[in-house]
């Protein structure tokens, strides 16, 4: 098996954004899109698919976890939690 790996993103019917659903192997971009349709939208999930070669994704590394993410861990003021919400406002 020498086909390259692709990552698959699907946008659901009510979803606003594409969500990563998994990966697959394919010979080229077009086959990747068709295989993604067959593998990841079998249960009426999607209305739009993106595929991208895994090699083209730049990901954060676990080694950089602390400088990348720890600094936001104590900045509680970045969350809008200091407002009082009236009782008659639903869905918040």
């Amino acid at each position: 098996m020498s086909w390259p790996l692709y990552e698959v993103f699907v946008r659901g019917k009510r979803g606003l954004n594409h969500v990563h659903v998994g990966s697959l192997h394919a010979a080229d971009d077009e086959s990747a899109l068709h295989s993604a349709r067959d593998l990841y939208t079998r249960r009426n999930e999607g209305v739009s698919i993106w595929v991208v070669r895994s090699a083209h994704i730049t990901a954060s590394s676990p080694d950089e976890k602390d400088p990348f993410f720890a600094p936001s861990g104590d900045k509680v003021y970045r969350h809008p939690t200091f407002y009082s919400i009236p009782d008659d406002v639903p869905h918040i």
């Binding site: 659901g12 019917k13 009510r14 979803g15 659903v21 249960r43 009426n44 999930e45």
Partner: peptide, 10 residues
């Protein structure tokens, strides 16, 4: 039952 991962509206 709108969890996006399960298709709806069959």
């Amino acid at each position: 039952d709108g969890h996006w991962a399960f298709g709806t509206g069959f």
